[in-house]
Simulated assay, not measured.
Amino acid sequence: MSKIIEDYIKELNQKLEDLPESDRQDVIDYYHEFLLDGDFQTEQAIIEDLGTPKMLARKVLADYSASADSQSTKQSRKSSHSNLKTIWLILLGVLAAPIGIPLAIVFAFVMIAVLVIFCAVFIAFVAFVLALITGGIFVLVKTFGLLCSSNWATGMFYVGLSLALTTIGIMLLPIIGKFVQFLLARCATLFRYLGGKIFKRHYFKTRSTSGIEE
């Protein structure tokens, strides 16, 4: 193997550290053989065909994250962290994919817009929960003096209302975590779908997938 190919493969391997070891080795073996068979003589020739190791790694990781097959092997690890990583890898892969600058910008804009919408929904939900708690406390403080006056019955009503608001807010607090997981799961699913539409050429190449037509 020439020094040029050796250096390219070594850097690619480092950039693919997020892939499981067995899958990473298969990908490295595939592109190693690809470069040897192609008889590339210069680094520029490799970059023109595959992109830089960093760009190729992003496309491989994005294709892997968007792949239904790869996701089915990670059913037990569908955590918020893994979904967030999936979203990030696919977004980076879209930006690195050679699908034309205008089209890349459109897809990236759509994905970023989706993230903004999901963040807005999350912030609105958190604000609603906090408003219930703070509103309940505020009502309690403002009406506490009524309990010691002739309007004690009205005071009792507002005290009950404040306790109800605060209790509902506190009960909703644990749901915030579940809500985040739900939003990230739905967002990751959407990104996988969009990624599957974008990556017509499969960059996640292994010995078992190398027969896929590009």
Rank of each mutant, 00 (worst) to 15 (best):
L130N: 08
E6A: 10
E17G: 03
Y64E: 09
F191W: 03
A108R: 03
L172M: 13
H32L: 13
V106L: 14
C119G: 15
L130I: 13
P53H: 13
I101T: 14
F191K: 00
S76G: 05
V114C: 09
D18L: 15
K200P: 04
G51K: 01
K78M: 08
T134Q: 14
S76K: 10
T209Y: 08
L140R: 03
T134W: 11
S22D: 15
S149F: 05
E17M: 08
S2T: 03
N13Q: 14
T166H: 01
I105R: 06
A45I: 03
G155A: 05
T73G: 01
A124M: 14
L36G: 08
S70P: 01
M55I: 05
S210C: 07
S162N: 11
S72R: 09
R192W: 07
S150Q: 08
V126N: 05
M55Q: 15
D37M: 11
F40N: 04
L84D: 07
R24L: 14
V60H: 02
F179D: 07
M156G: 06
T189F: 02
A96P: 04
L61T: 00
G135H: 05
T166A: 12
K178P: 01
P98K: 00
I137V: 13
E33P: 00
D37W: 06
D18G: 00
